[in-house]
Design a protein around this nucleic acid. Structure first.
Lengths: 184, 184
DNA sequence: GTCTATACAGCGATAGAC
DNA sequence: GTCTATCGCTGTATAGAC
């Protein structure tokens, strides 16, 4: 029972933040659903922001992992393709929980230190896809390939397609942007 | 002097919403900068949301305009290209004011009726780029071309490039996604 | 260690005086 | 058209019960 309350707070908070938005969800709501007073939350988490930080911790570790891998590889087309596929895998795995929450609240959390850390890592991955002396158009295109995975996730929610179709379409568009196969 | 206060409220609100975020900007701040009490704002605007609605009104008119134009044209590759360029023009013109504000606050304003109206129109434009019986991959690609203009705006802010380069890169990537020139 | 009770300043919003 | 006063709500904080 000890660490149970903390985990339940995280679970309820993640769900409500995703459904209603971060700012629109009050600590009183979270506490009520758990059957405690909101002051009890302050024993487990220093602030409301601190709950978000705890939720994002795992994803940041994942990002560090993929960044370390990327930096250990030669900067070839195969590496970039492999990176994109690995990144897509990560996104799909976490999409139903944290990913969804982050997508829907990225503006509210723009200045949140932990979210800033996540965005910094995402941009680092994007930058690592190119060499520093690549033309800016190419660097930007490769960044957009990465971001297309995020956007594909969001955009495909608007369409009536299966998860499998979404996987396929997101990946193929992202890969297509990545390498500019038609020449430049 | 009559309508002056209302316009000044809009001007201050837009600036503060953009700089600090919508939720993080209080009506007291806006009122203080104008030199009145926050209750005075409620004579000019029914709610805080109402200020946003008044700011977005022009952009919605612009969207309706482009949507009407698109629907009057044949569904050809030339039309789609022209649409993309017109859309990019609109974005660049309004980018320094309303566009920036909307980008930075889209999550806070997710359920805002006026913002919903804007998103609905954006998706309508995206849908109009394809025929209903086009394969879902193609429809999705064309939507992503449109959205790439938005994302290009945002993403290029992270890079140290000129406005002209940003224009050029955003457009070329968007056009490239649009038509799948490599075949499918 | 885990929680309740209580308080505080600031929020969006409203009522009614001038 | 703008004011004061007030409402119920928020995130935050602390004192103290068990």
């Amino acid at each position: 029972m000890r660490e149970d309350t903390r985990a339940k707070i995280q679970e309820i908070a993640l769900r409500l933040f995703t459904e209603q938005g971060y700012e629109a969800t009050s600590l009183r709501e979270i506490a009520e659903e758990l059957g405690v007073t909101k002051a009890a939350l302050y024993y487990h988490f220093k602030t409301k922001d601190d709950i978000v930080a705890s939720l994002a911790a795992d994803r940041i570790a994942e990002q560090d992992e993929i960044l370390a891998w990327l930096r250990s590889q030669p900067k070839t087309a195969e590496t970039r393709k492999e990176l994109l596929l690995r990144y897509a895998d990560q996104l799909e795995r976490s999409h139903h929980d944290l990913g969804r929450f982050l997508e829907r609240n990225q503006t509210s959390l723009r200045d949140h230190p932990t979210i800033k850390a996540m965005r910094t890592r995402m941009l680092e991955v994007a930058e690592e896809l190119s060499a520093p002396d690549d033309p800016v158009g190419l660097r930007l295109r490769r960044s957009m390939a990465l971001f297309a995975l995020h956007w594909g996730m969001w955009l495909t929610q608007q369409y009536d397609i299966t998860d499998e179709e979404r996987r396929e379409v997101s990946r193929s568009v992202a890969l297509e942007i990545l390498e500019d196969p038609c020449g430049d």
